[in-house]
C-alpha cells in the first residue's frame, strides 16, 4: 500500500479514468498502472466507454466547433464522478484549463465545465496533492531521468510531485538531465507538420538524455514519450523509455516503449 502523510486519510473516492487516446491505443499498460496506483490510493476506478480523445488535435488546429462538441461529450461522460484523472498532463490541462474557456458562452455547459474542471487532475499530482500519497511500494533497479512535459509543468505546475514519488521507489536513482523543462518537439500535430524543426528539438533532447547517463527515460505524457522513444530507437540508443506510472506501479514487466516483445 502507498503511504500517506499522517494528517491526511482521504475518504474513498470514485474516479473516472480519462484514459487518453494515446494510452488507450498505444500503451494500455500505462492505463492499468494508473488504475493500480489509484486503487492503492483508496479510489474506485471506472472507465466511461463514451470517452475518446480530449480534442486537442482539433483545438490546436483551430477547429473550435469540433473541439466544443468533443468537450461536451467528454464532460457528459465524466460528470458523475468525484474526480476525473488522466495519466497525462496535456489532456488533464485540456479539460482543466481549456474546457471552461471553450464553453464559457454556452449556457448549458459553462458552469458544468467549470465544476468538472476543478475535479480534474493529472495522475501523479492527483496522488500527491489530492490523495496525500507521499511514497509508493515499488522497486526499480536502475538510474532514470525525468522529462518534464510542457503542459503538466507550465499549465498544472507539476514538477516536484513525480520526483517525490520516484524518490520512494526502491533501487531507483534519478539523474536529472540538463534542460529537463525544455520541450521535446512533440507538440501533437506539430511533429508531423514541421518535421524538420521537431527533429532538431528531439535531437537536442536526446543529447540531454544521453548525457544524463540514465538507463531509463521517464515522463508523464505518452505523446512526448513516443516522440523521444522514436528518436532514441532510430539512433540506436540503449535507453529504455517508460511512462512514470509503470515504474511507480511496479508494472515494468512489459517491453519498454519501442522495444521488441520478449520471447
Amino acid at each position: 500500500m502507498p503511504q500517506n502523510s499522517p494528517q491526511e486519510t482521504p475518504a474513498p473516492a470514485r474516479v473516472g479514468l480519462f484514459v487518453t487516446c494515446l494510452v488507450d491505443s498505444m500503451r494500455p499498460s500505462v492505463g492499468f498502472a494508473a488504475v493500480k496506483l489509484l486503487e492503492d490510493a483508496g479510489c474506485t476506478v471506472e472507465v466511461p466507454r463514451a470517452q475518446t480523445c480530449c480534442g486537442q488535435p482539433a483545438y490546436n488546429s483551430g477547429d473550435r466547433a469540433d473541439t466544443q462538441a468533443i468537450a461536451r461529450q467528454t464532460l457528459a461522460a465524466f460528470e458523475e464522478y468525484d474526480y476525473v484523472v488522466a495519466p497525462s498532463g496535456s489532456c488533464a490541462a485540456m479539460i482543466r484549463e481549456h474546457y471552461p474557456a471553450l464553453l464559457a458562452t454556452d449556457p448549458d455547459w459553462s458552469a458544468r465545465a467549470t465544476l468538472i474542471a476543478e475535479r480534474t487532475h493529472e495522475l501523479i499530482s492527483f496522488l500527491t496533492d489530492v490523495r496525500g500519497v507521499t511514497a509508493v511500494e515499488a522497486r526499480f533497479d536502475g538510474t532514470v531521468t525525468y522529462h518534464d512535459s510542457c503542459s503538466g509543468l507550465r499549465e498544472l505546475g507539476i514538477k516536484a510531485q513525480p520526483r517525490q514519488l520516484l524518490a520512494s521507489v526502491q533501487g531507483l536513482s534519478l539523474n536529472e538531465m540538463q534542460d529537463a523543462e525544455v520541450c521535446c518537439g512533440f507538440g501533437g500535430t506539430f511533429c508531423v507538420k514541421y518535421p524538420d524543426i521537431s527533429n532538431t528539438m528531439v535531437e537536442e533532447k536526446s543529447g540531454c538524455i544521453a548525457n544524463s547517463g540514465a538507463r531509463t527515460l521517464l515522463a508523464g505524457d505518452l505523446g512526448c514519450l513516443l516522440n523521444m522513444a522514436g528518436k532514441l530507437k532510430r539512433t540506436g540508443s540503449p535507453v529504455e523509455v517508460r511512462h512514470i506510472a509503470e515504474v511507480l506501479a511496479g508494472t515494468t514487466d512489459t517491453p519498454a516503449i519501442g522495444d521488441p516483445a520478449q520471447n
Partner: peptide, 17 residues
C-alpha cells in the same frame, strides 16, 4: 512526417478499452 526522423513505436496490441 514522423518516420522520416524517428521510428514509430508499435502499439501493444489490444486497446485499453
Amino acid at each position: 512526417g514522423w518516420t522520416r526522423h524517428r521510428d514509430f513505436p508499435a502499439p501493444q496490441g489490444k486497446t485499453f478499452q
